[in-house]
Every structure is written in structure tokens, then in C-alpha cells.
């Protein structure tokens, strides 16, 4: 818990993280069986053989385009989906094998903040019931009075008016609803929260507020975040490390400053040039790498390197061999045959 103080550097980089691994994800696979219109069975490999660590107190970003498996990965870690294979080890315990009763204990430690604040709150429940449900399930309130008091505190903590506890979600704006979602997630006093694009459904003017609230909660409650986003600007601001996903694989994983300075994977390089640049003079000079085509179907992914169909540097070896997810420089993991040579 002491690693909170170590978060001193202005970039938000956490130097104490190396020691404490909170979650180990090992060879995690999440396949979905689907039936095509002709009745043929097929498998969608939404997350395919992903291995990484999440350190205590850090914010690990996860970026990638739509359909790359970011959300699925987040949900598999929390066992919202039952992983097809692989392990998720939370403080030394493999939670993928836990029975339902034992899992409840870990549900309390790991929470989820949803992308869409309109769909993720039950429209027939008041705010106090939405937040209170978390308290009820884990029996965190000793009495009715205690429950009401705890709900009040939580609402205050996330910056909501406590008098609004008896209102329904539809009476709130998007940003306020997302705060309700945050209050619900932190009600059980978790250690780890998956933030699934928590600001992408919100107005640009509200985003900063919500991100600040999330950062404030992290500092106060010693939280660890897995921050899923497709907004590279937001990720740069919030995350200590960033993983880049493509077609169910993590192709690059590195400290966020390093990622922006020295991207090694061609996909990351292309993504970074796509960040909008406010200064038109700079934008003109910039060499934007435009990727050809669409992300291939996860039902029928390309052989070898999954990115080779759109990679400007693809060679024969990319077709034949799956590139290893290897360390290039300290803590800089890349899955590319030509990492460092491009």
C-alpha cells in the first residue's frame, strides 16, 4: 500500500511498481463459438494468447482499434466471460479456476467501469439502490442507517450531490451517470478496476473531469487501473504503461513516455501518426502512415504475424512465423520480427 507515495514524478510514472505484481495474465485465450448464417460453426478468437503483468498502483493503458479485443480482454480478466484457456493470477491466486462461492471474494476486489453510462445503470433503480446493491451483496453495511451514510459518503467522494440519492439515472447527465458508475465500482473497496473507455461516450468538455475523478480515486484508495481506450491522447495523460492490441494480440507493451517517443511496432507507429495535431503547420510536415484496408476478421485471421496484411514492411517470414512477444530494451515488449530494425 505504501507505493502511493512513490507516485511522485510529474509524468505519473510509478517507480515502485516493479516489485509488486498485482495481476499476472498468462496465455489468456478467449474464443467465442458462433454460427454463421449458413449454419457453419466458427470460432472468433477475440483474445488470443495474451501474457502480461499488471503492477500494483499503476494505470495500464490498453489501446487498439475497434474489434481488437480490448474490452473482451478486460472482461475475461474479471471473469465476466469464462476464459477459454490461460490463467489470471490475482495476488497469487488463480481466479480462473475458482468456484462461484470463492469467486465472490474476488468480485469484491476487482471492479469494472463501463463505457456507456446510459446502459450500465438499471433504469428502474434509484441512485442509492444502484450504489447500495454493491454494499448489500458484500454485506458491507451494518444497518440501514449505516448503508445510507455509506452511500452518501460515496456520492460525495465522486463529486455528486448527496441529495440526489433518491433520483433515477435518467435524471442525470452523462458525466454524472459515469460518476454514479464510479461510485458503484468503488463501493466494494476494490483493489483493481477495469475502466472500459470510461470517457469515450461523454462530451469532450466532461472527459477531463471524469479522468480527474478517476485519478483522485486512484490516489485516495490505492487503486490499480486497466484503462481501455482508443484515444491515444487520453492514454498518454493517464497511463503509466501502455499495451497496444491488434486482433486479439498485444503487439507492444511499454512505459507510456517510451511508447510515444520510440514506438517499435509498425502498427503502433501508424497509430501514433493518427493522433490529431492541433497545429496545422506541424500537421502538414508530419508523415502520416495510412494503413491499407480493414482489420481482418478474427474468425479467419492471417497466418504468421496478424498484422502482416496491412504492414508496410511485411516480408516472407511474417507469413510463416508468429513473431515472439520479446523484450527489446528494459520493459519494452514487442511482437515483431523486425523490432528495432525499422
Amino acid at each position: 500500500m505504501a507505493n502511493n507515495e512513490s507516485k511522485t514524478s510529474p509524468s505519473g510514472y510509478n517507480s515502485a511498481r516493479k516489485q509488486d505484481v498485482l495481476i499476472e495474465v498468462k496465455n489468456l485465450k478467449q474464443y467465442f463459438n458462433i454460427k454463421s448464417s449458413l449454419g457453419k460453426k466458427a470460432t472468433v478468437k477475440a483474445v488470443d494468447d495474451v501474457t502480461f503483468n499488471i503492477y500494483k498502483g499503476e494505470t495500464l493503458g490498453l489501446v487498439g482499434e475497434s474489434g481488437s479485443g480490448k474490452t473482451t480482454l478486460g472482461r475475461s480478466i474479471l471473469r465476466i466471460y469464462e476464459p477459454t484457456a490461460g490463467r489470471v493470477i490475482f495476488s497469487g491466486v488463480d481466479i480462473t479456476k475458482l468456484k462461484k462461492g470463492k469467486l465472490l471474494h474476488y468480485r469484491k476486489k476487482m471492479q469494472y467501469i463501463f463505457q456507456d453510462p446510459y446502459a450500465s445503470l438499471d433504469p428502474r433503480m434509484t441512485v442509492s439502490d444502484i450504489v447500495g446493491e454493491a454494499l448489500d451483496i458484500h454485506k458491507l453495511a451494518t444497518s440501514k442507517k449505516d448503508r445510507a451514510e455509506k452511500i452518501r459518503e460515496l456520492l460525495k467522494l465522486v463529486g455528486l450531490n448527496t441529495e440526489h440519492a433518491s433520483r433515477y439515472p435518467h435524471e442525470f447527465s452523462g458525466g454524472q451517470r459515469q460518476r454514479i458508475g464510479i461510485a458503484r465500482a468503488i463501493a466494494v473497496e476494490p483493489e483493481f478496476i477495469v475502466c472500459d473507455e470510461p470517457v469515450s461516450a461523454l462530451d469532450v468538455s466532461i472527459r477531463a473531469q471524469i479522468i480527474n475523478t478517476l485519478e483522485e480515486m486512484q490516489e485516495r484508495l490505492n487503486l490499480t487501473y486497466l484503462f481501455i481506450s482508443h484515444d491515444l491522447g487520453v492514454v498518454r495523460h493517464t497511463c503509466d504503461r501502455v499495451g497496444v492490441m491488434y486482433l486479439g494480440h498485444i503487439v507492444e507493451l511499454v512505459e507510456s513516455e517510451e511508447l510515444y517517443k520510440n514506438p517499435l511496432h509498425p502498427y503502433t507507429q501508424a497509430l501514433l501518426t493518427a493522433i490529431p495535431e492541433p497545429d496545422p503547420e506541424v500537421a502538414k510536415k508530419r508523415n502520416r502512415i495510412i494503413l491499407k484496408g480493414e482489420i481482418p476478421s478474427p474468425v479467419n485471421p492471417p497466418s504468421g504475424c496478424k498484422f502482416r496484411t496491412r504492414c508496410p514492411f511485411a516480408k516472407d517470414i511474417c507469413k510463416k512465423e508468429i513473431p515472439e512477444f520479446k523484450e527489446h530494451g528494459s520493459g519494452h515488449y514487442v511482437a515483431c520480427h523486425f523490432a528495432g530494425k525499422l
Binding site: I80, Y112, F114
Partner: peptide
């Protein structure tokens, strides 16, 4: 899903 994550 949110209720499931809470352990309902």
C-alpha cells in the same frame, strides 16, 4: 453485467 461484476 454490472450486477454480475458486483457478484449478484
Amino acid at each position: 453485467l454490472a450486477a454480475k461484476v458486483l457478484g449478484a
